[in-house]
């Protein structure tokens, strides 16, 4: 340490003043650029909401909140209401979650908890990620030509034996129905839940699991009492993301819901969703009808927003619990 000895006697040697060198310019430039971009994104969002609402204004003025509880959609008489579609949207998403949540979490557990050797789990994991890449119109086609004929006997049997139960009631199921939409939606959203939950489990420290096992917990007890609670916020966010996807999915709903404009409590019967309604009607809609469709779009946005806010609250809850 002779020549390199640090001699800080003269204060010039210590350089801590602000400098405008190239890296600093880049740094500042980057901050400004991202600021502009994020403001732009925000403005875009507000513009879309404002303009949709503006276009929906005639319908809003004409129908008011009654729009939400009217179950008629009659372009001839110019009477519009979206109660069946609100029901269809919420029910299909909810039922899709009922299928997808256990399946997705179960898959994630299988893929992370050493139940099978790597040469099995790696391809399965990869295949699951690939499901996300299937275009929804293809899934819709598959639903019409493969799934509907395949499940028809099962649906009929359920309908037959449980007619008293409103969700399964009505005449013998034939083709499109809300339940079919739910099934296809669950196939679409299950990979979202599985892959996010999986990375949540993978990010948990290994010694957490070892700690539970060393206390004499079985593998299942460890998963249920330590791993899932520890990963709960990740799991809940994955469910919320999946729910958002299900609420907004359009193609599948338009293709296999049946687009029925009356309210039908039974999931076995044709129904419709807000997205399906908009997609199937905007082409030949008259003036007030377009406005009504815009109104329906606003309703969907509010619905999604409410669900997201609720989700955020739920996630916060869980995070607080963990700390």
């Amino acid at each position: 340490m002779t020549s390199a000895a640090r001699d800080f006697e003269s204060s010039q040697d210590i350089n801590i003043e602000k400098k405008m060198d190239s890296s600093r310019i880049l740094d500042v430039g980057f901050v400004r650029l991202t600021l502009v971009l994020s403001i732009f994104a925000g403005i875009l969002l507000i513009l879309v909401i404002l303009q949709t609402t503006e276009a929906a204004l005639p319908a809003i003025q004409q129908f008011g909140l009654e729009f939400l509880v009217t179950s008629r959609w009659n372009p001839v008489e110019n009477i519009f209401g979206v109660l069946p579609q609100i029901y269809g949207t919420l029910m299909t998403s909810l039922v899709a979650l009922v299928f997808a949540v256990p399946l997705g979490i179960g898959t994630a557990i299988f893929l992370t908890e050493d139940f099978a050797p790597k040469w099995i789990t790696v391809p399965i994991g990869f295949a699951i990620e690939l499901i996300v890449a299937i275009p929804s119109v293809v899934l819709g086609l598959w639903g019409i030509f493969v799934l509907i004929p395949a499940v028809r006997p099962i649906f009929r049997a359920i309908n037959e034996s449980m007619k008293w139960f409103p969700l399964f009631g009505g005449p013998a199921p034939r083709g499109p129905s809300l339940l079919i939409v739910s099934l296809v939606l669950s196939i679409m959203i299950c990979p979202i839940i599985a892959s996010i939950t999986r990375s949540t489990f993978e990010s948990l420290p290994r010694n957490l699991r070892d700690g539970a096992l060393a206390l004499g917990a079985t593998r299942w007890e460890t998963i249920l009492t330590v791993m899932i609670p520890a990963g709960l916020s990740g799991i809940v966010s994955s469910i919320m993301l999946a729910m958002g996807r299900a609420l907004g999915e359009t193609m599948v709903a338009a293709m296999i819901s049946g687009n029925a404009n009356r309210i039908n409590i039974s999931l076995m019967q044709p129904g419709s969703t807000i997205t399906g309604l908009i997609a199937s009607q905007f082409g030949e809609a008259g003036r007030l009808q377009v406005s009504a469709l815009m109104y329906a779009g606003v309703v969907l946005m509010i619905l999604t927003l409410v669900v997201n806010v609720l989700a955020e609250i739920v996630i916060r809850r869980f995070q607080n619990l963990e700390q």
């Binding site: 420290p205 010694n207 957490l208 070892d210 700690g211 539970a212 096992l213 060393a214 206390l215 004499g216 917990a217 007890e221 009492t225 330590v226 609670p229 520890a230 963990e322």
Partner: peptide, 30 residues
Amino acid sequence: VRRHIGMVFQKPNPFPKSIYDNVAYGPRVL
């Protein structure tokens, strides 16, 4: 076997649960 032979690890690994629930974990699960 592990019910009778406890283990303490190199890195502390409390569960993301309350202090009470951490200690009560073993008796509960067993």
